[in-house]
Design a binder for these strands. Structure first.
Length: 462
RNA sequence: GGCACGGUGGCAGAGAGGCUAUGCAACGGAUUGCAACUCCGUGUACACCGGUUCGACUCCGGUCCGUGCCUCCA
């Protein structure tokens, strides 16, 4: 197989990916709301779509990957009221931290990281088009999308309008014509962020509803239709469903759900020790914290260790497995340090696994199988090429394995050398008690001794 | 309640109508003063019940169990 297959949530089938324009592939993925640190579930989305964009770039000459930053949202307002920090301070801070944290996971910045607050004008244009075409209406200071005006509504998530009303556990606001209607624009009070709009009430200020930003930004930066729209499965309904409704209806495409995005890709949910992350359980794992304890690359490999559409249960055990696996790879790379790697393509087994709907577990298995062959410039080239595509194995082996410690000098190299000398002497005198004492002492400091043919070496562990 | 997705060896996790997944752990061996590191080798699986088939863990139906969505959520 030489072509990319992707599971398309819209058709519920694995399909051959055929770009709308093979000279320019366009992809959009829903990014974070910046009011706090990103958790490991956010990271899964970022890593999955980072990998997808890497694959697309390998295949096609030009790829534009857009991912948004939601910087206007009720949760941000709440955070601001709680901490007293201005909204802009909060959103800028967490955008910066998000990008730093994702970078630690080997995630490249998207080509365009669009911010909601910079696209209010485009949102207003879209909402006006919806009103004009009879898909939206003003009510009590709000502008709402009228779901019954779009008979195809629900096509992505596969639930009819009746079904969701039947199951709805929310109170239905009185200003809605239909219980399924959702907000496009809402009024802002004086202490909430707001922009002038054609639907001014309450001193003339309002702010967008959640869904409209993605419709507006995807259209602006990618044009319609574009190739791939992605995000977590939990966004399928209602967020993505609503995006489709807004974008299709604004352009009169009532019968073609794919007139917005041709393919829809959803990554599975992440649980922690079998449970959903939630504030009440206190099991929110923040990337910001994890990267202090574990190399980002081990986290990335853990996220890629299950297929992207499968649920992934996060556990320390899984992370340490990933770390061990990387140790093995780096060990082999270290053995080949002096070899000039041969320039090679990504090995077929790895590449074809990824072409098959990003089957990363299979790709990783193939990568492991490469280790069965002997060290050679070719092997080194293959490992590095496959690693580059996956966003792995790009560190210096000596540093990864701890043979070279960079700046973090909680290690007294002179002392270690002295102790190693003493141990050498003790061993030659068969004073194994002292020799083992030194070994244990160094180990408590995180220094592991390796006895080799060329004498003792040491490396920093953990 | 509705919709959807799963149940694979000790654990994680792919796959496939008949052909070794892979990793971690475990065990055996090499190496070592003993270890660690490293290397070599080994084992165990496909929830349950029917059906289709020459043959199913893989296809179909049912049962049981688990998870997610239906409300903010990656």
């Amino acid at each position: 197989m030489l072509e990319l297959q992707l599971y398309n949530s819209l058709t519920r089938k694995k399909e051959l990916f055929v770009p709308l324009d093979s000279d320019h592939v366009r992809i959009y993925a829903c990014g974070p709301t910046v009011y706090s640190y990103a958790h490991i579930g956010n990271a899964r989305m970022a890593v999955v779509f980072d990998l997808l964009s890497r694959m697309l770039r390998k295949i096609y000459p030009k790829v534009t990957y857009v991912s948004n930053i939601t910087d206007v949202d009720d949760k941000i307002i709440e955070a601001s009221q709680k901490t007293g920090e201005p909204i802009k301070t909060i959103t800028e801070k967490y955008t910066r931290i998000y990008n730093e944290d994702m970078s630690a996971l080997g995630v490249n910045l998207p080509d365009i990281q669009s911010k909601a607050t910079e696209h209010i004008g485009e949102m207003i244009v879209l909402i006006e088009a919806l009103i004009k075409r009879g898909h939206a209406y003003e009510s009590d200071g709000h502008v709402l999308f009228n779901v019954p005006s779009f008979p195809a509504y629900g096509g992505l998530s596969g639930r009819s309008r009746d079904e969701q009303i039947a199951g709805a556990r929310v109170e239905i606001a009185s200003y809605k014509k239909d219980p399924a209607d959702f907000v496009l624009w809402k009024p802002s009070s004086d202490n909430e962020p707001g922009w002038n709009s054609p639907w001014d009430v309450n001193n003339g200020r309002g702010r967008p509803g959640w869904h409209i930003e993605c419709s507006a930004m995807a259209e602006k930066h990618l044009g319609l239709p574009f190739d791939i729209h992605g995000g977590g499965v939990d966004l399928k309904f209602p967020h993505h469903e609503n995006e489709i409704a807004q974008s299709c209806c604004a352009h009169g495409e009532l019968n073609d759900l794919a007139s917005f995005s041709k393919y829809w890709v959803h990554n599975g949910f992440l649980t922690v020790n079998g449970e959903k992350m939630s504030k009440s359980l206190g099991n929110f794992l923040l990337v910001h914290d994890l990267i202090k304890q574990i190399p980002g690359e081990a986290l990335r490999l853990t996220l890629l260790s299950a297929h992207y559409r499968q649920p992934l249960d996060w556990s320390e055990d899984k992370v340490s497995q990933s770390k061990r696996m990387l140790d093995r790879f780096y060990h082999r790379l270290n053995q080949m340090n002096d070899m000039v790697s041969e320039k090679t393509d990504v090995p077929d087994a790895v590449y074809s696994a990824l072409l098959d709907d990003l089957n990363t577990p299979k790709a990783i298995a193939a990568l492991n199988s490469l280790l069965k062959t002997q060290n050679s410039p070719e092997l080194k080239g293959q490992l590095l090429a496959a690693g580059e595509l996956l966003g792995l194995l790009q560190e210096k082996p000596k540093e990864w394995l701890g043979y070279e410690t960079n700046i973090d000098i909680d290690v007294d190299i002179a002392l270690i050398e002295t102790l190693l000398q003493e141990r050498k002497k003790a061993r030659s005198n068969k004073d194994f008690v002292r020799s083992d004492e030194i070994r244990d002492e160094l180990l408590t400091q995180g220094i592991e001794i390796e006895d080799t043919k060329d004498g003792a070496k040491w490396r920093k562990v953990n």
